[in-house]
Computed example of a mutant assay.
Amino acid sequence: MSAHGGPNFLGWHRTYLVLCENAMREKVANVTIPYWDNTLEEALPVPRQSILFSPLFMGTANGQVTEGPFAFWSTPFGPLGRDVGSDRRLMNPNDISAIMSQSIIADITNPNAPEATNMEELHNDVHVYVGHIMSRIESASYDPLFYCHHAFIDYLWEEFRTNQRMRGIDPSRDYPRIVGEQAHQPLASMGLGRLLVIDGINDIFTRRIYRYERRPACVPNSNTCGSQYLRCDWSRQRCVPLIMNQNGPNMPQAMGQTGPPVQVLPWWARQGSNANTNQNQFVFG
């Protein structure tokens, strides 16, 4: 299987996300996998204090997950847990700029890409940063954050492909000649149904199956970034998540803001008849 260690890292995970989303839609027709732009948390002094790791969203950042929709999940590797911030790092705007400055997929994937633009290596750092189950290949997919993380990597790849088209490069024909491991050869089996490795760079995914909303950006004459969960840090012109304060994880507040904290209902509690509160059967979306 060619999920790691070569240029099919991107195409394999793109295909895997589509298959997972389709499987979830057999349970909930309109469910989608959101992406986690981890550069938002990177902008915080203490990323684990982000509202992302509150009961409103992903739950506990350090230790067993005991809050939120994924509380007390069990996995074949033990209870769902995290150790956010214990090792490695999140991505930052410079990483993204470096990736977007490249021209072909060989510039951003193993075995040819330098460390600064190697999307697989940058993605590995985030896995290890979240820690615990997410830090190991064999167990990472048991943390729902896995899918959001990979959706962001896929989002960045699609931005890269858009840039390629603007440069006159056809991304559906951009597969390296030097691929390293045999499993990454273009006509090798992807290991997902009947698909071949070369199918992973086909344009059909984002032309016929799904598309992405743009990353959050500061809104002029406003303190928001188009979301009630984000605020704009105008000193850096960067969007940052609300943070949890001393009053408890249900009480997020904006960095640098005074006044009473904002009380927000969990996103999964606002789904009406589509909400599934059974923790062992929760459908991520």
Rank of each mutant, 00 (worst) to 15 (best):
A140V: 01
S141D: 08
D143C: 04
D143Y: 02
D143L: 01
L145D: 01
F146W: 15
F146C: 08
C148K: 11
H150V: 03
A151D: 03
A151W: 00
F152T: 07
F152E: 11
D154V: 08
Y155R: 07
W157T: 14
E158N: 13
F160V: 00
R161S: 10
Q164T: 00
R165P: 00
R167F: 03
R167Q: 15
G168S: 01
I169D: 03
I169F: 03
P171D: 05
R177C: 11
I178C: 05
I178F: 10
I178P: 01
I178W: 04
I178G: 03
V179W: 09
G180F: 00
G180N: 02
G180C: 01
E181K: 13
E181A: 15
Q182T: 14
Q182P: 01
A183L: 08
H184T: 13
H184W: 08
Q185P: 03
P186G: 07
L187P: 00
A188C: 07
S189E: 11
G191T: 04
L192M: 15
G193W: 05
L195M: 14
L195E: 12
L196S: 14
V197D: 11
I198C: 09
D199F: 05
D199H: 15
G200M: 02
I201E: 03
D203G: 12
D203N: 14
I204L: 10
F205S: 08
F205Q: 03
T206A: 13
R207K: 13
I209M: 06
Y210L: 08
R211W: 06
Y212C: 05
R214E: 14
